[in-house]
Computed example of a mutant assay.
Amino acid sequence: MTKTLDGFTFDLPPTPEQVIELAHQHRRNLDEAIFHQEIHLGNFCLAQRKRVYDFTRQLDVQQREDFYSLYNGELLRIADDDELHPVHAERGVGVFAIALVMGIIALVLYYAFIRNVVGY
């Protein structure tokens, strides 16, 4: 039994080579879409993932997990590193920085308003 998705003919269940080729094709489609101003990337990616989702509904649970494991793993493997937004910068703000800012805000509020209201 075969099924077509984005121009590829898949066996059911798809072979690992077919899944990897689909991931590469989706990456190429995204690279091309980036340079077209009339394409909204969010909608483009959602539509692409929706087609994959609809395709995987025809597989049983284990086949679906294997498909997504291969597909997502290959997309991560071929992803470009973003030097402007490194992974370590995504950790968030440290607790010390938050406490320092809150302390500064408290001091400003104290000297600007509370001292005048209390009468010190």
Rank of each mutant, 00 (worst) to 15 (best):
F35M: 10
H85M: 05
H36M: 08
T56V: 15
L76R: 14
L109N: 11
L5H: 05
F67D: 00
L84C: 03
Q18L: 09
A79M: 09
N29K: 11
N43A: 10
C45G: 00
E90T: 09
T4Q: 07
E32T: 06
L59V: 08
Y68F: 14
E90V: 04
R49K: 03
T9M: 13
Q48R: 05
H24Q: 12
A97N: 12
K50E: 14
Y68E: 06
R115V: 14
V101W: 02
R64D: 09
G92Y: 03
D60P: 05
D80M: 04
D82I: 13
L5S: 08
R77E: 04
E83T: 10
V118I: 15
L5K: 03
V19T: 05
E17V: 00
Y68G: 00
H40E: 13
R57V: 12
M102G: 09
Y110N: 11
F44P: 07
H26M: 11
F44M: 07
C45W: 01
F10S: 04
D11Q: 09
A112Q: 10
L75I: 14
R64M: 12
L100E: 13
Y111C: 02
R64E: 15
G119D: 01
V87E: 08
H88L: 12
Y71T: 01
E83Y: 11
A79G: 09
H85A: 08
H36I: 08
G119M: 06
V117L: 06
S69D: 07
R28G: 07
G103L: 15
I34W: 02
H36P: 02
V118P: 06
D31I: 06
G42V: 01
N72Q: 08
V52R: 06
D66S: 03
H88G: 02
P16Q: 09
L41C: 01
V118Q: 11
D11V: 04
E83D: 12
P13R: 02
P13A: 01
I98R: 13
Y111M: 08
Q62G: 03
R57W: 00
I20A: 08
L107V: 14
E83H: 11
V61C: 05
Y111V: 10
F55S: 04
L100Q: 14
I105L: 15
E21F: 04
A112G: 01
T15Y: 09
E32C: 03
A47L: 11
D66H: 11
G103M: 12
T56N: 11
F8V: 08
L5C: 05
Q62R: 09
E83M: 14
D31R: 10
E90P: 00
L75V: 07
G119A: 05
S69F: 05
C45K: 11
F55E: 05
T9A: 15
Y53R: 14
L22G: 04
E83G: 06
F55V: 02
V87G: 00
F35K: 12
I34D: 00
F35A: 13
D11F: 03
E74G: 02
D82N: 15
M1T: 11
F35R: 13
I78S: 04
N72D: 13
L46C: 04
